[in-house]
């Protein structure tokens, strides 16, 4: 299973970035091979609008089946859901710890976005 985690650094030891749309990077972990890939998201940090949508497109294109992050807004949630990607919010600490919490069942996928959009 491929899990994308929003991240402030470039390794699984780095802290989870609480933002989804404007996350610095995504760490894409393959739980079968235990390997990971770093996806840069710098272009989205400065986008005027639609950052959540574009981040959702990025993780989908990389084959993620689960997204783990701090918060997720309504537009990103709609796109991720349409792509069949599970969304886990409320993650803290390191990327590795967040993945472990998810695999143990301490962090569960959400049914809806947990923060408002910027214009709602």
């Amino acid at each position: 299973m491929k899990i994308a985690v929003t991240c402030r650094g470039a390794s699984p030891d780095s802290p989870v970035d609480p933002r989804f749309g404007r996350a610095s990077k995504f760490i894409l972990v393959d739980t079968e091979s235990d390997g990971f890939q770093v996806i840069d998201n710098a272009q989205n940090l400065n986008s005027a609008q639609g950052a959540g949508i574009q981040s959702a497109e990025t993780v989908s294109r990389h084959g993620a089946e689960v997204v783990i992050t701090g918060h997720c807004g309504p537009k990103a949630f709609r796109v991720l859901s349409a792509a069949g990607i599970k969304i886990v919010v409320g993650a803290q600490g390191s990327v590795a710890a967040a993945i472990e919490s998810f695999l143990k069942g301490d962090l569960a996928p959400s049914e809806c976005s947990d923060v408002d959009g910027h214009w709602e």
Partner: peptide
């Protein structure tokens, strides 16, 4: 359509396009 729209107002990921009218 999704690739064309620089404002991400229409998004298609393997599925039928989603439209975000406000964008």
């Amino acid at each position: 359509c999704s690739e064309f729209c620089r404002f991400h107002a229409i998004v298609a990921l393997k599925t039928e396009p989603l439209v975000f009218p406000e964008l």
